[in-house]
């Protein structure tokens, strides 16, 4: 069993297989299920992801009305031909948002690694699919590669916003996605690890500050940027750029940053964007019970 990214990369290099294959072999050993059963299980997850994206691209709205419809806006913009940052990148961003808009609307999604960060891995997958034309098997492998990296993060740091902030959720998801993109594009296991390191480095310190405590604002747009970050880092790694800080040390840094983050910035809905005047106003509108701090704000604004 691999305990860190260095071991994971070494195993893949020694056995001359993809990282996805290392994860599948470990899963066979741990679960006692057959390869076919494991592949079928991941295939189901893939189907759920595909349907969630489809649903999101048709336009959804959450019960609070805070989120929904942005994935559609971005698709329309791509079609207009005016996009500056590249259609593939924006397609990934749009599909990441589509998934999270469905999640916010209490629809069915597959957590990757969590529900709040469920957009990044499928969003990037279904965008690069259009360029790389993978087989169904390769798409399933994409998810196992993501799982392998997520597995290391989850066991050595955290994938919970409440424990480690958004860097642990969308940051982890983005790192996982970057590694998977690299592997699907034909990069080496080492390049996959570099892509993850580069991505996660740039998500460090990201706090979890959901408005009204809901997985909506800023979560949908954080998934958008997670996808964009993953795409860029994957291209950088494929270009031969490496991270000066090794992947495992970046993960360790993420963990220690999460440990020192105040609880107001770890999914309590008490700090950051949640505590802004607008954040508090939205909270009051949704739950109909203005908090003390909202009252303070209203007084100060009037005076």
């Amino acid at each position: 069993m691999f305990r860190n990214v260095a071991e994971l990369v070494k195993l893949a290099e020694q056995q001359q297989v993809k990282i996805a294959e290392i994860m599948i072999r470990q899963e066979i050993e741990v679960s006692g299920l057959s390869r076919e059963e494991i592949i079928a299980k991941m295939d189901e997850n893939l189907t759920v992801m595909e349907k969630a994206i489809e649903r999101g691209l048709n336009g959804v709205k959450s019960q609070t009305g805070l989120t929904g419809g942005d994935a559609v806006l971005l698709q329309n913009y791509i079609k207009s031909g005016r996009a500056l940052s590249g259609n593939l990148l924006l397609d990934a961003v749009s599909k990441a948002m589509a998934t999270n808009e469905v999640n916010a609307a209490m629809g069915i999604i597959c957590a990757t690694p969590t529900a709040g960060s469920a957009g990044v891995v499928p969003g990037t997958l279904f965008a690069v699919k259009n360029q790389l034309n993978p087989t169904r098997k390769e798409m399933i492998e994409y998810l196992f590669t993501a799982a392998a990296f997520g597995f290391v993060i989850a066991n050595n740091a955290s994938i919970s916003g409440a424990a480690g902030g958004c860097q642990a959720e969308v940051g982890s998801a983005a790192g996982m996605a970057a590694a998977s993109i690299v592997e699907m594009a034909g990069g080496t296991p080492k390049q996959a690890a570099e892509a993850m390191a580069i991505t996660l480095k740039n998500m460090l310190g990201l706090v979890c500050d959901p408005v009204a405590g809901l997985v909506e604002v800023p979560c949908v747009k954080r998934n958008a940027m997670g996808a964009s970050n993953a795409m860029t880092a994957a291209d950088m790694a494929l270009a031969g750029i490496t991270s000066r800080i090794p992947c495992d040390e970046v993960i360790a840094a993420m963990y220690s940053i999460g440990q020192s983050m105040p609880s107001s910035l770890r999914e309590t809905g008490e700090g950051g964007l949640a505590a802004t005047p607008t954040g508090r106003r939205l909270e009051a509108e949704i739950f109909g019970e203005p908090k003390a701090r909202l009252a303070d704000y209203l007084v100060s604004r009037d005076s």
Partner: peptide, 19 residues
């Protein structure tokens, strides 16, 4: 803490939060 690939990719669930 985590032993399976499906702890990371999964579960299939109703949103909005895995935890």
């Amino acid at each position: 803490k985590y032993r399976s690939a499906f702890d990371i990719i999964g579960p299939i669930m109703i949103g909005p939060s895995s935890s």
